[in-house]
Amino acid sequence: MPTIPSPLPGVFYRRPSPDQDTYVSEGDQITEGQTIGLIEVMKNFTELKATAAGTVTEFLVDDESEVSVGQDVAVLE
């Protein structure tokens, strides 16, 4: 199954801000290039975009958890 890896190290966020809904949830259909979260590095936020289209079956990283370069964040079906 395809995965979506983190392009850089930082903190993974599933929502654009604490008072907004998540970008996507498990079970959602997504398209290639769709934003699924943010990676924050030293107060700079970079969108994490889907590398393929499919259904998000699982997030491998909790919201507000640290990720490293190449670490898989989500699994697609």
Rank of each mutant, 00 (worst) to 15 (best):
V11G: 03
Q34S: 03
T22W: 10
V41Q: 11
E66D: 15
T3A: 08
T22Y: 13
P2C: 01
S17M: 10
T3W: 00
G27W: 09
T3E: 10
N44L: 15
P18R: 08
Y23W: 07
Y23N: 02
M42R: 04
T51L: 07
E40G: 11
S17W: 03
D63P: 05
V24G: 01
L48K: 10
G27S: 09
P16Y: 03
S25C: 12
E40H: 10
Q71M: 08
L38Q: 02
A52F: 07
G33F: 02
G27M: 05
D72P: 15
F59M: 08
V41I: 11
E26H: 01
V56H: 04
Q34T: 08
Y23I: 01
G27K: 04
D63V: 07
L76H: 12
E77C: 00
T35W: 12
P18K: 08
V69G: 04
V75W: 00
E64W: 14
S17L: 09
L8H: 00
V69D: 14
P2W: 04
V67N: 06
D28T: 06
P5E: 02
P18C: 10
I36V: 15
V41G: 11
D63M: 10
V69F: 06
T31N: 14
M1E: 09
P18S: 11
R15C: 05
L48N: 09
E26R: 00
L76E: 01
D21G: 13
F45G: 05
P5Y: 01
V41N: 13
Q20S: 12
A52T: 12
I30H: 02
P16D: 02
G37Y: 06
E64F: 15
E77H: 04
E66C: 00
D72H: 10
I39R: 03
E64N: 15
L38T: 13
E64Y: 14
R15P: 04
N44R: 13
E26N: 03
G27N: 06
I30P: 08
E26I: 00
M1G: 12
G33P: 07
L76I: 11
T31E: 15
G33D: 11
M42V: 07
G70K: 02
L38K: 05
V73P: 08
R14H: 10
Q29E: 15
D28C: 04
R15L: 03
G70D: 11
V41S: 14
Y23V: 03
L38C: 12
A74L: 08
M1N: 05
T55E: 10
V11C: 03
